[in-house]
């Protein structure tokens, strides 16, 4: 108990939290976990950990760039202008221009949408498939566990990037196939986490109690046990989003998947790499830094996301 306190002991501002909580426990509005309560909790998590706050801030910027990117950028990301080829960063072109005179800033911002889309869709797919496989394996055990476990071991036996390359090469060079490939290589992580988390709770008292309340096995698994496996999965999701972006960019970098002239961080780094030797560093550095920041953001977000979905963090 004391350790719990110690873990969350860095809170200078607890008065707001407590007040919000007390007001949420109003006998008239006793719907469980009212939104005010949940919102106060999210605010608390963000306030208590500056790293989480920064990462969510960066994530917010990325989301805005992804949604509004094409409308707010100063130049058309595809329009070439040979008059301003390979200009270094200036007030007109913040990140400089590339070999065709396209504005690097506009391209970097517009690329956010595609990269985020690939990462989020891929991770969502692998989360759904992986956690379903893992939960069923962890709950029922037996032959299903054995078979799915060995299948996952097989996927894990490949170098994951090479496997993704192989999948894209075999299925065809499209954005969907990048998504499928990224999803497949990430399934094992979710399956394993879900299997472990479900397995240790299979015979927990609350699962037995749920059976006594008239829930059949599937309901016990889906509505009682699985939600308890969410906190560690959240960390996995966040880390995976970072990996997925790197993976998509990596595939594009070696020429698979997204093709030029589509703005995409991986291709931009690949194209810019040729110019580093001749001193035009801005072509590769700015998309590269965006990529790095995106991955960093997702890596830092994990802990905060976990604390948000864990009711035991609410006090």
């Amino acid at each position: 108990m004391m350790q719990d306190h110690a873990a969350s002991a860095t809170a200078p501002d607890t008065v707001h939290e407590t007040v919000a909580h007390v007001s949420a426990v109003d006998p008239e509005t006793t719907r469980p976990a009212s939104t005010g309560n949940a919102f106060a909790h999210i605010v608390y998590v963000l306030k208590s950990n500056p790293v989480t706050l920064i990462s969510f801030g960066l994530f917010g910027i990325m989301i805005i760039a992804a949604l509004l990117g094409p409308y707010i950028v100063p130049y058309d990301p595809l329009a070439s202008n040979s008059a301003v080829r390979l200009q270094p960063p200036s007030t007109d072109h913040w990140f400089g221009t590339d070999q065709l005179g396209r504005d690097v800033f506009s391209r970097v911002v517009v690329a956010t949408r595609l990269d985020l889309f690939i990462a989020i869709t891929a991770v969502a797919l692998s989360f759904v498939i992986g956690s379903m496989l893992g939960s069923l394996a962890g709950y029922y055990g037996g032959w299903f566990d054995t078979i799915s476990g060995r299948m996952i071991d097989t996927i894990m036996a490949f170098p994951l990037f090479v496997l993704a390359m192989g999948i894209v090469a075999a299925l065809g060079n499209t954005v969907e196939n990048i998504i499928y490939a990224t999803a497949i290589i990430n399934i094992p992580f979710y399956a394993r986490v879900a299997r472990g988390e479900v397995n240790i709770r299979r015979h927990a008292g609350f699962a037995q109690a749920a059976r006594l309340s008239g829930n059949n096995d599937l309901r016990v698994l889906a509505f009682h046990i699985f939600p308890n496996a969410l906190p560690p999965m959240m960390v996995q999701i966040s880390l995976n989003l970072g990996w997925a972006i790197l993976n998509a960019a990596g595939l594009s970098f070696i020429g698979l998947g997204v093709r030029p002239p589509t703005p995409e961080w991986g291709i931009m780094v690949a194209e810019g790499a040729q110019f580093i030797v001749s001193g035009e560093w801005w072509l590769a550095v700015f998309p590269g830094v965006s990529l790095m920041l995106a991955v960093l953001t997702f890596n830092l977000m994990g802990d905060g996301l976990r604390d948000m979905v864990d009711p035991a963090q609410r006090t």
Binding site: A204, F206, N228
Partner: peptide, 17 residues
């Protein structure tokens, strides 16, 4: 047929009010 469990902490779903 119902049951009261041994450990009140273990037998309540931590995510349920």
């Amino acid at each position: 047929l119902q049951m009261v469990f041994q450990d009140p902490t273990d037998s309540l779903n931590p995510r349920f009010t």
